[in-house]
Write a protein that binds this DNA or RNA. Sequence first.
RNA 1: GUGGAUGUAGCUCAGUCGGUAGAGCGCUUGACUGUGGAUCAAGUGGUCGUGGGUUCAAAUCCCAUCAUCCACCCCA
Length: 421
Amino acid sequence: MRIQSPKGTRDILPSEIQTWQWVERVARSVFGTYGYQEIRTPIFESTDLFVRGVGDTTDIVEKEMYTFNDRGNRSVSLRPEGTASVVRAILQNRLLDGASVLKVYYIGQMFRYDRPQAGRYREFWQIGVEAFGADPPAIDAEIIAVGHQFFSTLGIKDLILHLNSIGDPACRPKYVEDLKAYAKAHLDELCGKCYARHERNPMRILDCKENGCRAVVANAPLLSNYLCAACRENFDMVKSYLDRLEIDYHEDPYIVRGLDYYSRTAFEFTAGGLGAQNAIGGGGRYDYLAQEIGGARTPGIGFALGMDRIIIALDAQHVTVPTSPPVDVYLTVLGDAAMPIALQLAQDLRENGVKTDLEYKGRGLRAQMRTANKLNARYVVMIGEDEISNEAATVRDMGSGDQQSVAFQQLAEMLREKVDS
RNA sequence: GUGGAUGUAGCUCAGUCGGUAGAGCGCUUGACUGUGGAUCAAGUGGUCGUGGGUUCAAAUCCCAUCAUCCACCCCA
């Protein structure tokens, strides 16, 4: 049996890499204009970081982490998300000392042991953005604006921003208590899953898709009616800033983040063309995460974007991705005597920055031309007996079909100019 | 973790009632001594996912298993 990639993982092939590189390029460029810098953190961390940071009652920590003991018997986990690592790195390296707000982004793989599905993999890619060390609502608006600009630069269609405030420790406990009481009064109408979790994590009932639960939720108490004055004012400010930046949003009282560390602003971006997994980004404020992992209480806000889903959406929506052909010039080689000369000429071209490939296998010229055509080469340089005796290559413009003889000495310079123009 | 669908050539797929494997695309060569995209022809290409079972005979029927896809769930 031939070995295959593990379940839920896949290879990103040369034929699709230009799309991935473009998405990364746009991300770096957009985030850069907002003053964010890249940070790279380990792909595995102490299991404890996620247990305390993400929360030990979350599905992610309870049943989706790749956790194992290393040879020194330390429990480590492949990262299921990026925020906890970033906050850990900022605290550990004291990056906030002397800084007002620390703005970073990351790009990398995350790992969750989930059942694979359309747009869901066990190894998946996230781009994340974090603003750490400040809680004025202008930061919330800016973070959302970063994501919004990223998606619109890519040209993603049917983008919807769902927005909510999920309160803070001053107001949420009272709400959770009332919600729990309400759920208890309607237990017989809830699905088995919600029945089981109404005590531990009642807010999950809010985004359950079962019909019975939806009916119950329709009349459930709303968190928006419980927000304390500070949270309410904060939420109003965020919305007014978004209005000013002309970013549309749908207030969605049922947005509940799946990670414990969120408070106040919570949001999610959805896009068309994705099937059931249509969330392409989500995030929120996490003012209590730093203290959970042993730091001083430090506010922060951020979001993560699902690269895999973004790329599926780009494809489904037929968004044009800028691409460049893999080579500018293809050298055809006819006869054994031509090989050393062709190799030398290819070297000259490459040293001049011209993307060059050549024939290695001594096939007929027709086959070589077909390869050049398939590679989308702009020029073909032919080397055979005639060229060797004249010390001049035949250069064919593949667009026009025009051919000319160019002395070996001048070939690299001539093609460099043509390719640059 | 639960359910449904699907695994046949590099890719997309056909294969009837069980009788020993096919097409298109690709690739190679030629028509066109050294010239691409179009056309035509020939050639290349297969542990029929894997392991059992039934049968004179299995891609086809049965069982198990693995993988993929989709949905639940969860989330990015």
